[in-house]
């Protein structure tokens, strides 16, 4: 069941590879971009309550790409869903382009934060979730991190406080392509669950499984979804 309120895609999932290929010059992050593709698509196609014609709607769900490296998949999905023009993709990383190697909320319609320096998205998401709740706003907050990015200590400051404050309007998706240099003994899920989060692991390429994991109720607790992909992808 599709939960999103977004209009139908301008371009379908099968076209995302072609859209991503329009953006060249950041091949060092191609694997990072490819790793996030299915999670971002599942969010925008099935989960998020957002509308590209109402970008300032206070009640819109917020998606924060904390893992800002390799944003080609993000831009491709935004183009496919009508947030940015397809023509913009070919300008990627040029001086005149709003689309850089790291996304900037000041420049790109529909982008909620400026990311690239790792470990910023989850702390912002915690504040955003607290703030929306304080204002009685039913919007939900989704933040996508990488398992390597999880090394940043700022994430663990945020994980602890989100659990203690029972932020059930917050979902963190950790893309696990085994890129953390030291790994996560005990598992990534354990890092979240010990702090009071609901935590699930799913196949990060399976749209149906991702959607189910992201939409199953987690009353009274923030949700961590660990999305597995191939190592290095």
């Amino acid at each position: 069941m599709a939960l999103t309120t977004a209009p139908p895609a301008v371009h379908e999932y099968e076209e995302l590879g072609r859209l991503m290929s329009l953006m060249t010059g950041d091949e060092k992050h191609s694997a990072a971009a490819t790793s996030t593709l299915d999670v971002i698509w599942a969010l925008y196609d099935q989960v998020l309550r957002i509308d590209p014609t109402r970008l300032d709607d206070p009640a819109r769900d917020r998606f924060l790409l904390s893992k800002g490296h390799g944003p080609m998949a993000y831009y491709a999905v935004l183009a496919a869903k009508g947030f940015i023009d397809l023509d913009t993709l070919t300008s990627f990383a040029t001086y005149e382009s709003p689309l850089g190697h790291h996304p900037d909320s000041n420049l790109v319609p529909g982008v909620e934060i400026a990311s690239g320096s790792l470990g910023h998205g989850l702390p912002i998401a915690v504040g955003l979730a607290i703030g929306l709740r304080a204002r009685g706003n039913p919007a939900r907050v989704y933040v996508l991190l990488g398992d390597g990015e999880l090394d940043e200590g700022s994430n663990h400051e945020a994980i602890a406080v989100a659990g203690r404050r029972h932020l059930d309007n917050l979902t963190a998706i950790v893309l696990d392509n085994q890129s953390a240099s030291r790994g996560w003994p005990g598992g990534i899920q354990g890092r979240f669950s010990v702090e009071g989060w609901a935590a699930r692991r799913v196949n990060g390429r399976n749209h149906e499984a991702l959607t189910q994991a992201l939409t199953t109720p987690h009353d009274g607790r923030p949700l961590a979804v660990v999305a597995s992909t191939e190592a290095g992808q």
Partner: peptide, 19 residues
Amino acid sequence: GIREQLLIGATAGLALAGL
């Protein structure tokens, strides 16, 4: 708590929420 990176990050999030 004693988490100053979160102190500022969460402050930014509160501002994003209109506070």
